[in-house]
Amino acid sequence: MVERRQFSGCMQGKNLRFLEANNTAPVQQTRVGFLLLEHFSLPAFTQVLDTIVTANLLRPKLFCSRTFGLGNGEILSDLGLVIRPDAQIGPEALKDLDLLLICGGYRTELKADEQLISLLKLASKTDVCLAGLWNGAWFLGAAGLLDGYRCAIHPEHRPALAEISKATQVTSEPFLLDRDRLTASSPSGSYHMALEWIKGLHGKALVEGIEDILSFEESRYRRTKASPNVSVSAPLREVIKLMDTNLEEPLEMEQLAVYSGRSRRQVERLFREQLGTTPQRYYLELRITEARRLLQHSEMSQVEVLVACGFVSPSHFSKCYSSFFGYRPSKEKRLSR
């Protein structure tokens, strides 16, 4: 029986959906509500929604979501698509939420009536985290709920927020998480805001898994990366690039050191301090992860895959694959067919 191996943290996210597919451990579900305002930014809304839906693909039932309107009618998005919310927002709805996102847009009117102001204040008092997308932060500011906070808002609406909420630090950042306030100024900012929020709840590996899924559709056959090792130093990034471009004929440690202009001890220290693993282990995990991708998304045979990923024999490849994924490479699902 092959002993199971665990991916190190830096590669765990890319393989999360394969390693934890049968995980039935109970989870604490986070309840998310979207308050859709007239002419709200549909891309900003869907960026957040897609992110939490993808998180549920990796770890089922982590999140549940509902959409709300200020009334009972349909709401027109900025793209002209009509959305019918699940329910009208009210005090009772707040009892079932952990996060409420105010979804604004470029043409969303900066006007908050007393009912909305009271509702947002009640949400704050009941420990519901509050978020604003596009110009959603303006409504939080109008309710006095951004005093002492840093926030992000679309550039068009920064002066308006600064005027109505003078105790708020209005920034030019694309997104910000400041304690129990989350704000984003654009669809891209909304996506990264959601990722950062999820990382705080469930860790970096889950976020890396989400990024891997949402960036992969660019090509089924060419390797793509969401944000390749943005958290590592330039010297370590150079070593990882060398590994990444030399999978078929893996470089020896001495070669990695020489080509990167570092000593072997320096390279090992970079991996240990920044990724919590060894260069050899990272290299193996990189190759076995690429092998899984090729088996799933290409027409290459098992032998062609093992050669492309630098394994010396079918038996060695099968043993490594089984140790990480719990089954032989011949059992891998061929998604390309």
Results as ranks from 00 to 15, higher is better:
Glu92Lys: 14
Phe325Arg: 07
Leu146Phe: 06
Gln47Met: 12
Thr224Trp: 00
Ala167Trp: 01
Met1Gly: 10
Lys125Ile: 02
Leu76Val: 14
Leu242Val: 07
Val232Cys: 07
Pro187Asn: 10
Leu81Lys: 12
Ala93Met: 13
Val32Tyr: 01
Ala123Gly: 06
Asp50Gln: 09
Gln115Arg: 13
Val48Gly: 14
Tyr327Trp: 09
Glu92His: 11
Leu120Ala: 00
Ala143Phe: 10
Gln274Phe: 01
Ala234Arg: 12
Arg66Phe: 03
Arg31Pro: 02
Ile213Gln: 08
Leu242Glu: 15
Leu145Ile: 11
Thr54Lys: 01
Leu110Ser: 08
Phe325Leu: 12
Ala143Ser: 13
Leu214Lys: 08
Ser65Asp: 13
Tyr221Pro: 01
Lys95Met: 05
Pro26Asp: 06
Asn72Glu: 09
Met243Val: 07
Glu273Ala: 08
Glu114Lys: 04
Gly105His: 03
Val170Ser: 01
Met243Thr: 05
Ile288Thr: 08
Glu20Thr: 14
Glu290Val: 03
Met193Asp: 00
Leu306Glu: 11
Glu156Phe: 06
Leu146Ser: 10
Met243Asn: 08
Thr277Arg: 00
Asn15Val: 09
Ala234Pro: 03
Lys166His: 15
Gly276Thr: 01
Gly326Trp: 11
Ile89Leu: 14
Leu101Ile: 15
Lys95Asn: 09
Arg5Ala: 08
Arg31Gly: 03
Arg59His: 15
Phe317Ala: 12
Val307Met: 09
Ile288Trp: 05
Glu208Pro: 02
Ile198Lys: 05
Glu254Asn: 04
Phe216Gln: 15
Asp178Gln: 02
Ala112Phe: 00
Leu97Cys: 04
Pro85Arg: 04
Gly105Ser: 01
Leu214Arg: 13
Ile164Ala: 03
Thr67Trp: 10
Arg265Trp: 13
His316Lys: 15
Pro235Val: 15
Ala257Glu: 06
Tyr191Asp: 01
Pro174Glu: 15
Leu256His: 05
Arg287Ile: 08
Pro43Met: 01
Phe325Val: 08
Leu76Ala: 14
Ser8Pro: 12
Gly33Thr: 11
Phe45Asp: 02
Arg272Asp: 12
Leu35Asp: 04
Ser298Ala: 02
Asp178Pro: 04
Leu256Tyr: 06
Ser233Val: 08
Asp178Lys: 02
Ser301Ile: 06
Glu273Ile: 10
Pro279Asp: 04
Leu79Val: 10
Arg84Thr: 11
Val48Leu: 12
Asp147Arg: 12
Phe68Leu: 09
Leu270Gly: 06
Leu130Ala: 11
Thr30Tyr: 09
Glu217Ser: 14
Ser186Asp: 12
Ser323Cys: 11
Arg84Asp: 05
Pro155Thr: 13
Met253Phe: 10
